[in-house]
Amino acid sequence: MPYAAEISRTNPSCFLFLLDQSGSMSDTFSGGSKKKADGVADAINKLLQTLVLRCSKSEGVRDYYHVGVIGYGKKVGPALGGNLAGFGLVPIKVIADNPLRIEQRTRHSDDGAGGILTQTVKFPVWFEPVAHGQTPMCEAFDQAWHLVSAFIVQFPGCYPPMIVNITDGEASDGDPTPRAGMVRDLASTDGNVLLFNVHISASASQPILYPDREASLPDEFARFLFRISSPLPPAMLQAARRDGQAVSDASRGFVFNADLVSLIKFLDIGTRVSDKNLR
């Protein structure tokens, strides 16, 4: 059965993020002053933080994943900064220990007795918003193909690598559909590479998570990104249903003006602390 390989330190999986850093990302979200580039930076910082925390144990961070980020805008290439500049895929522990900086943020939560608990928490930042140049998405998929191919050669039995493309969908170097198909055609012995898309749109439409048909989507870019997204594997669908997400067997790894953090939680690396236990 595909998508059943155990994710472990000896058989890690891989997350490769593709970040749209083009000039169009300086547009603001409808009805607000926040730029789409801010949305992309928030999304990637949150995704990396979630990945690190899921792999973090008492003794440190376990390398269940190798992680990389390719930016595409004025240039296409590895987009991690600071100590990680120039690296393709690195073990998640290296990501954990090398954010650009760590901010102090305030978190409000239910104190369980009808009050609000205010806590200061550390928030690591790996990415600053960038919006410059064209949108060479095809070239980004080409680079993704090379990085992920090399990973599969190294770990042929891995849980299939996951590529997460965060964009507003407007490619400037041709139709990325064939390139996206080539990426999805890559496979480990456990199944084909999964391509997920996060659509950062200036449209005022409501967030959409894991849709199962393109007719329900608000614009042509959303429909394009839906078409190139992989269907969610059965185990992820099952985990999503347990979490109360409305998904069908045809649901795809695509979200519109929402984050994909929940998707990371659907991957099985052991007993999860589900939200029901956090009341």
């Binding site: 690190v52 925390l53 973090s56 440190g60 961070v61 806590q119 928490v121 550390k122």
Partner: peptide
């Protein structure tokens, strides 16, 4: 503790 260990301790 590192930031991630601190966050996990908090949880």
């Amino acid at each position: 503790l590192a930031w991630y260990a601190e966050a996990k301790l908090e949880d």
